[in-house]
Amino acid sequence: MKHTTRAPGGNVQAASILGVVRPKRRTRALLFRVGELLESYSMIAPAYMVFLVFIFIPVAWSFYLSLFDYSILSLKHPEFAGLENFAKMFGDSVFRVSVWNTVRYSLGTVPARLVLGLALALLLDQKNLFGKNFLRTVYFLPVVTSMVAASIVWSLVFNASEAGLANQMLKALGFPPKGWLADSKLAMLSVCIMSVWKELGYVMTIFLAGLQGIPLELYEAAAIDGATGWQKIRFITIPLLRPTTFFILVTEVIGSFQVFTQTYVMTGGGPGYSTTTLINLLYTKGFFEFDMGYASALAVTLFLGLLLLSWAMRRAFRAEEIVY
């Protein structure tokens, strides 16, 4: 990129105004630009190839497959089915249940993560808190734990017998034991509790990073004006964390719609269909019942739903430039 300062376009333009452009020169300038573009594209090509092969092509392929009747087992070619998979999907009561379960999971985890994550971040952001780094590590540990391992440990916590940790805690508080994962009324709640615990550290870390970005002068000025601690949080911290909150909200909502491992390991989607989420259904249809066309239709629907949701959130949170 050694010629970038020469601005060849400008030269050509200047020359044409003067009416003395020789075609040869123009071609050369054009060639130069093409060369420059090629150079730039070749720089990003390696990274883009990875995206292309592992993301774009599979995504496009699943759009394509959603219009086909395709069992990945039969080595026959997929048969075109038009919108049949989608018609089947909207007529499928299990699909409706799984959408509702996914929404329930999202509502059960995202707000809790946001509120608790912010509270933790505020607590652990205090200057003279003893053992601050240790505590941050502790809260972050679940994030780096394998989801399968955590799910297995939590199914022991939620064991329906007297010996389960959750039931022992209830007993200590004087309540009767519950069925937790085996009770269709509590199974989703149990999964949500586990999932909030698992991802809380991540939300906390992002909020902590956001908090570092707020200038201290604002708090000092507020203190001079006689603001209380709560007022500082309410009128400085929370408004200025808006971009961070938006980021967390969007990623968490998207993430919550893709929940799979916890329910797969802890309940297998049961009891009944009470914890079958969209991705659970997709997995069952695609990799257990081998109906890839239907599974692709589910994936496409989820994709479009998330696109719409992200767009709506973006509008609601329309980014105001924050000026300090």
Binding site: N159, P177, G179, A182, A187, T267, G270
Partner: peptide
């Protein structure tokens, strides 16, 4: 049967 067996893992 023990409580909570609707979705229990065989390992348990």
């Amino acid at each position: 049967t023990p409580p909570g067996i609707t979705t229990i893992n065989l390992q348990e």
